[in-house]
Write a protein that binds this DNA or RNA. Structure first.
Length: 269
DNA sequence: ATGGTTGTGGAACAA
């Protein structure tokens, strides 16, 4: 069987619920992991998902900022939420696929939204950058201990780790998301925990891969100044099941889009 | 070098 899991920073799930439904109808992933839902739990648009085929939903939200959610065709068990940096920010949720998922049963899904880190890449001048690095340090401490058994980690990690994950390595070396202190941290924590970067496993450098294009560009598609901020990682035991990683770039061109495109990982189990 | 846009919520902040 195949299992497909999409990660998408939706930048307000309430504003863009119609885009969520459109994507689900078109791409039909088994699981959709959202970030930046910007939605308190009591306002999550569950009614709109009725009849969509994605009735199994877990979420962790807050008012105004952050927020993560997992929508699934299959029942989900053991919803769990981790806190980082002694904040109650809604930046992680995990769940386990139930027996109905067949060969995918028991796979743990982790959905992360790493802090963006502000504009200035200096921990002394910018508390948001310090928060981001602290979050990555805690992710490192967690990842090394907890990854055992089949698991998938997706999300907006807000770091483009490799040279060809950005439109210009040289021009972005001092831009938050691609500074060496961030990219080295992310690659180190990923490697230590044994996670496989599924997109780069299938498509090594120097091919460019982007998942995000700024709203601020006059013509995002023509200028194509993208970055690969959204990731899909698998645990070592799933490495050889990775079949595809697809960026739904066209969704970035939909009306009133998110600035992130959906990224879909497909496994052959 | 700067400023460019979007969302929440109804100003200021986050991205």
């Amino acid at each position: 069987m195949q299992l497909s899991v999409t990660s998408w920073n939706i930048n307000s799930v309430r504003l863009r619920i119609d885009l969520v439904l459109r994507f689900l109808a078109e791409a039909k992933p088994d699981v959709l992991c959202l970030q930046e839902t910007k939605c308190p739990d009591d306002a999550f648009p569950l009614k709109a998902l009725r009849g969509s085929g994605y009735e199994h939903v877990v979420f962790a939200g807050q008012k105004g900022y952050n927020g993560v959610a997992i929508l699934s065709r299959f029942p989900l068990h053991t919803r769990d939420v981790m806190g980082f940096c002694e904040r109650q920010d809604a930046r992680h949720i995990s769940a386990v696929l139930g027996p109905e998922a067949g060969k995918a049963a028991g796979i743990v899904l982790h959905d992360f939204y790493v802090p963006a880190g502000g504009d200035v890449p200096d921990v002394n001048l910018n508390p948001k950058f310090a928060h981001k690095l602290g979050f990555l340090d805690e992710l490192r401490a967690w990842g090394g201990r907890r990854v055992s058994g089949p698991a998938i980690l997706v999300g907006d990690l807000n770091v483009a780790p490799l040279e060809h994950d950005v439109w210009s390595h040289k021009q972005l070396l001092d831009v938050v998301s691609h500074t060496p202190v961030e990219t080295e941290r992310l690659e180190t924590l990923r490697g230590e925990a044994g996670w496989i970067d599924a997109a780069r496993h299938l498509t090594p450098e120097p091919e460019k891969i982007y998942t995000w294009w700024s709203y601020r560009a006059a013509d995002w598609s023509a200028t194509n100044k993208g970055r690969r901020l959204d990731h899909a990682w698998v645990s070592p035991d799933l490495k050889d099941t990775v079949r595809r990683v697809e960026v739904a770039r066209h969704a970035r061109g939909w009306e009133r889009p998110s600035d992130h495109a959906p990224v879909t990982l497909t496994l052959d189990l």
